[in-house]
Structure formats: C-alpha cells, structure tokens
Amino acid sequence: MSETARILALHAGLVALLLVLNFVLPAYPQGNLARIMVLASYAIGYNVLFGYTGLLSLGHAMFFAAGMYGMGLSMRHLGFPAGPALLAGLGAGAALSLVVGLLALRTAGVAFMIVTLMFAQAVYLAILLFGKYTRGDEGFVIPQADRVLAGIDLSDPFNRYFVALALFSFCLFSVLWLIRRPAGRVLVAIRENEERARLLGYDVFAHKLGAVVASGTISALAGAFYGLLFGYAGASFAAVQYSILPLLWVLLGGAGTIIGPFIGTLFMFYLIDLTSGLTSAYMLIAGVALVLLTLFAPQGLAGELRKRLWRWLP
C-alpha cells in the first residue's frame, strides 16, 4: 500500500468507525463523543499553529469564543438563522485571528505566548464588560427552536452527533490536505528551522500569518458549532482554562500529528469525566498530565507511535 493510501485508510477508517458508533452507542457516550469531536476540532485548529508551525499560543480561547459569540450574539440580537449565524462566527474568528496575528507575530517565543495570553484575557474581560449583551459569566441559552440547520433539528442527539462528526471530518481532512500541500510543508520547515526557511526564499511572516488565521478560524468554527450544538454560550469558554485545554489535548495526543488532537481530547475528556465523579478538583488531572507530558513524553501518544511504529504518520 502506498503511503498516501495508508494515510487515507487510517483517517477515513477513524471517521467510518465514528459514523458506525452513532448507530450503536447509548445516549450518554453518544453525547460525550459528540462533544469530544467538536472539542477535537478545536484542538485540530490549535495544532495547526502549535504542532505544525511551532508557535505556542496561550490565548486560543479568544478564537473559540469569537466563533461561539459571533454565532450566538448574531442569533440573539440580530435574529440570524443558524446558517448565517455560523458564518458570522466564522467571520469573527477569521477577523480576530488576522488582527491578533498581525500584532503578535511581531514577537517570538515567550513574548508571543504572553501577548496571546493578554489578548485573550482582554477578550474575556470584554465579554464581561458588555454583560448587557453577553450576559457575562452566566451566559445565555440558545433556544431549541433556533437550533435548526437546513431543516435538521440539532438538539436531537442523533443529528447532533452526525453534525459534530461532519465538522470533525471536515477539519481533519482540510488540515491533512493543508499540511501535504507545499504551503503546509513550509509551515513545518518554519517550525524546524525558521532562518533556513527564510533563506530558501519563503516569506516566513506571511506563512506564519496564514497559519494563525487558519488555526484561529478552525478554532472559531469549532466554537460556533459548540454553541449551536449544545445550545449555550458563556464567558467561561473564553477564560484562560479554555486556552490551556487545547494545548493539553494536543500535547497528550501528539503535537504535529493529524490524529493526535482527537486522541488527546478523547483521553483527557474521559480522564476528567471519571475524576469529576470523585472530586470537584478535577483540573488536578490536567495539571499532573501537563507536568508528566513535558517531562516524559513531549511527543505525545501519536508522536510516540510515529517514532516507534509508523514513521509515515502525518
């Protein structure tokens, strides 16, 4: 089997498996998996920047929230139906990531991390400041009647799972496509050796900006769908924790792998789900995982898999 065929078989196989699960899973894991697929889409977006371009952002919650609030607020205050509201979320994420990219990319390394953290904090505080429209911490529910896309009722668990899977596959395959294209290869080159990439004639800033926008827009798309599928938008999705979580998922699953974000999200979701039954301090698991991963497995699960077994894993 050629490498391309193998790669397609693996990822299409995952999507097919997830499709079959929709018909066999009981209600609770079905709901969980729908949530995981949307969050994994967010992680896939994060991975474009962190895993493939080598830029560590501590502020991706602002993009997730831009999508969620772009969708939710346009529905709530402008009366948009679901389709245009999703586009509004997407547009908000794209615009925000363009602006943040233009500014933050003037810095590098630790400064880039802090700048993104600060911008995200400003977005979070702005959501609180305009509580009149956003209802601040409390957030707002998106009424069931509005959660209809092309005649499909998204509050129905079966439909919701299906739409989450469609979103997930779209993100998975578009990023797979992106990183196999010449532009995607340049991102990897920048991650590996920025100065060398520049001296091969590549416009490093333009490529990084493209990566920020692609990453931010995918994150926003995930945020918009999260709000729509689960019927709620709240400021907690813009808080620091939601910037740290995708980093954790990607690190756990394997940065710079296509399948890693899904694996990481799946594992961490269930780990936290199990722990939260025992204690309210479930973020302890996240903390321990972060420390252990940086110490012992910086490549993550899929990264180790690639190192040991499947060198072709994209």
Partner: peptide
C-alpha cells in the same frame, strides 16, 4: 543549517518547491 528532523528528500524538495 539544514532541517535536521526532516528527510533529505524533504530538505531538498523545500529548496526546489519555491
């Protein structure tokens, strides 16, 4: 200054692709 963690093929391909 080469791309240490990439294959030789990819190193040279990056140079040619531009």
């Amino acid at each position: 200054s080469v791309f240490l963690r990439l294959s030789l093929h990819e190193n040279v391909a990056l140079a040619a692709r531009r």
